Computed example of a mutant assay.
Amino acid sequence: MTKKALKKQLKKQLKKAAKQAAKNKKAIKLLKKQLSAFEAKSMSYLERLFMSNVDYPIDDFGAIAYVDASYSDTGRFGSIGIVMLTRSEVIQYSEIPENLEECALTSTNHELLAAAKAIQMAKERHIKNLIIKHDNNSIAEVAKSHSVTKTSMEEWYKQVVMKHREKMSITFKKVKGHSKEYFNELADTLANKALKAERVKRANTPLFFSLGDKFQEALAKVKICG
Rank of each mutant, 00 (worst) to 15 (best):
V148P: 06
K32C: 13
I132A: 09
E95M: 13
N129D: 13
G78E: 04
Q159H: 02
I139G: 03
H126Q: 11
E89A: 15
Q159G: 00
L49Y: 09
A143Y: 00
Y71H: 09
A114H: 01
I224R: 10
A118W: 01
N192S: 15
D59S: 15
K4V: 15
P97H: 00
L35P: 10
G78V: 10
Q13K: 13
E166W: 01
H126V: 07
K174C: 10
K12Y: 11
L207G: 03
F77T: 06
A114F: 01
A143W: 00
M1L: 12
A63E: 02
A27P: 05
M43K: 08
E111T: 08
A218F: 02
K26H: 14
G81D: 04
M43Y: 12
S94E: 02
N137K: 14
V83N: 05
Y93N: 10
N184Q: 05
N99T: 10
E217V: 10
A187D: 00
H164R: 04
F50K: 11
D73H: 10
E185F: 01
F77Y: 12
R202A: 11
I132W: 05
S52P: 08
M51P: 01
R165I: 05
I82A: 02
K7V: 13
E166N: 07
V83I: 11
K25G: 15
K26A: 15
L6C: 13
L49V: 15
M121Y: 04
E89M: 14
K12G: 15
T74L: 13
A115G: 03
H178I: 05
K193M: 15
F208Y: 06
K26Q: 14
K23M: 13
K180M: 08
L130I: 07
F77S: 07
H164N: 12
M121R: 04
G177K: 03
N99K: 14
A21C: 08
I91G: 05
F77P: 09
E155M: 15
N137W: 06
N53Y: 07
V222A: 09
R125V: 11
L211M: 04
K8D: 13
V83P: 02
A140S: 09
F183Y: 11
G62F: 04
F38L: 15
A37V: 09
Q92F: 06
I139A: 05
T149I: 10
K123Y: 08
K26Y: 11
A143T: 01
I131E: 02
M1Q: 07
T74Q: 10
N109Q: 08
F183L: 06
